[in-house]
């Protein structure tokens, strides 16, 4: 069961701009096991979305390049595959759901057309069969009256329903890995809960692994088995969800969890993290969190800390943590 399906090693994706190099993803390593949900959490600009796009090899135009590292999908480094081979991989072996369903669906094609197109990538089949499979795909994502929905267009559906359709398209090719980049951020809370439950059920049924990108620790607690916390282009802590919530080791993770307003317990002043993340164009040589860290000492500014094993499957990049 602990078979690794996706192994990311020392990934570097930088933006090469006229005014300098933005090191948005700068040495990211993690692995994803078959049937596991790994959360990738962090604040805006920490590089979590760009990590996802690097895995899909769908980097934004304008100077972004993956310059170093390996992305091993079932042991094969997909960074070395040709663009044509990559098109075969996307959708069938690794797939993605984005935050805003509106941008993933084409407004001028019906839901049925878009589903049939996705299914055609899995296998060549006559149209009636594809239509039948589209109905099934919609039923799996719990859309009522799927036969009627096939003829409809995206604007005729609510946000929650569109996101389900996007999900249906993403998993149509039966990928081994699904990357979900903030898929519920645009949804209302009750609809978010429905969607997360659905995603979890589909994951259990299909055994696909999910890389779940979010900034919301509530979503992490609900969905993930393990979580990786990103800060300024690197993963600073990674471990089982329970451990990260109950005994976070990295000062950044600790401060981040403490600053979330809670639904229970005393209402006092919220813990804050003073200052701002470092510029990705001018990263410090030492720990990237040092300038905001209440526990920082001279060596934190001098060199980037090594990755310390702080518990079972639990690592943190910090000079101050105690090895297990």
């Amino acid at each position: 069961m602990s078979e690794t399906v996706l192994d990311v090693r020392d990934l570097h994706t930088h933006f090469f701009l006229r005014r300098g190099v933005v090191k948005a993803v700068d040495g990211v390593s993690f692995s994803l096991r078959r049937g596991e949900v790994l959360g990738l959490v962090g604040e805006s600009g920490c590089g979590k979305s760009l990590t996802a796009l690097s895995l899909m090899r769908l980097l934004p135009k304008g100077g972004a390049r993956t310059i170093k590292g390996e992305v091993l999908l079932d042991g094969e480094n997909i960074l070395e595959r040709s663009p044509a081979a990559m098109r075969e991989i996307r959708g069938r072996r690794i797939s993605m759901v984005l935050q805003d369903p509106q941008t993933s669906l084409n407004p001028v094609f019906s839901i049925g057309d878009q589903l049939r197109e996705a299914l055609l990538r899995r296998h060549r089949a006559p149209r009636p069969q594809l239509t039948q499979e589209s109905v099934e795909a919609l039923r799996r994502v719990e859309i009522a009256a799927p036969e009627q929905r096939l003829g409809q267009y995206p604007h005729q559906m609510s946000g929650g329903m569109k996101q389900r359709v996007v999900g249906a398209i993403a998993i149509a090719g039966q990928p081994a890995v699904l990357i979900a980049d903030e898929p519920t951020t645009a949804l209302d809370v009750t609809i978010q809960l429905q969607y997360l439950k659905l995603l979890k059920r589909l994951q259990v049924e299909t055994g696909m692994a999910i890389l779940f990108i979010t900034h919301d620790f509530g979503v992490v607690g609900r969905m993930c088995d393990r979580v990786a916390v990103m800060y300024a282009g690197r993963i600073v802590e990674c471990g089982p969800v329970r451990r990260i919530f109950e005994a976070p080791q990295h000062p950044y993770t600790r401060a981040l969890i403490a600053s979330v307003p809670k639904m229970t317990g005393p209402i006092g002043r919220l813990t804050t993290i003073e200052g701002q993340p470092p510029s990705l164009m001018d990263l410090p040589v030492g720990c990237r969190f040092a300038s905001r860290c209440v526990q920082a000492e001279p060596r934190c500014l001098e060199a980037y800390p090594r990755t310390v094993q702080v518990g079972r499957e639990h690592t943190a990049d910090c000079w101050k943590v105690v090895p297990a």
């Binding site: 809370v189 997360l196 919301d216 607690g221 919530f245």
Partner: peptide, 10 residues
């Protein structure tokens, strides 16, 4: 609404 709140406490 309350039960849809995802607690940051697994």
């Amino acid at each position: 609404l309350f039960s849809a709140v995802l607690m940051a406490e697994p």
